[in-house]
Amino acid sequence: MKEFFKYLINGIFKENPVLVLMIGLCSVLAVSTTVENAIGMGLAFSFVMIFSNLFVSSLRPIIPNNIRIPIFIVVIATFTTIVDLIISAYFPELYKALGIFIPLIVVNCIIIGRAEGFAYKHNVVESLADGVGISIGYIWAIVALGLIREFLGSGTVLDKVIIQSFNPAKVFSMPPGAFWGIALLMGILKWVQQKISRR
C-alpha cells in the first residue's frame, strides 16, 4: 500500500510530466485558453493514460519484446479513438474547442513514455497508481495554466467575472500568453523546490 502511494505522489510533483519532465506540452499550451477547456482536456488525457497503463501492464507477459512499441501505439490509438468518439457524441461543444488535440493524444509523449518506462516493467496495481498520479499531475498543471490565462486574458474564471475593476490583457488568451504562463508556473515550482530543499 505504501508503494502505491509512493508511485501516486511521484507523478504529481517529483515527476510532473508537464512542469518537470517537460513532455506532452503541446496540448497543455494549446488548449489552456480557458479553465473549462483545460478540465475537458485533462479528463480526456487521463482516460487514455490510465487505460493504456492498465492494458500495457496486464498484457506484459504476452507482448514480445521486439514488437512492443507498435503494440503500445495500437493500444494507445485505440483508447484515443474511443475518447474521440465519446466526446464528439456526448460533448459536442467541448469537441469543437479541443479540435485536433483529441486525436493528438495518441502522440502525447507522456503516455507512450509511461507505457515504455513504467507500465512495461511494473504490475497492474503499481501501473494504475502511476497512471492516476501522472494524470493528476497533468490535470493540475493544465488547469493552473488555464486559470492564469483565463483570468489575465479575459478577466474571468469559469466564465464568471471575479474582480470588476480588473482590466484583462488579451495577449494572455493568445499564443504568447501560453508560453509566458507555463514559464511562470515552472519558475514558481522551481522557486518552491529551492525553498524546501534549503530548509
Binding site: I62, P64, I67, V74, T78
Partner: peptide
C-alpha cells in the same frame, strides 16, 4: 500477435 491485437482494437473501435 500484432494481428491479434490489431484485430481486437478494430473490433472494440467498431463497437464504440
Amino acid at each position: 500477435t500484432l494481428m491479434l491485437i490489431c484485430g481486437i482494437a478494430a473490433g472494440v473501435l467498431a463497437f464504440t
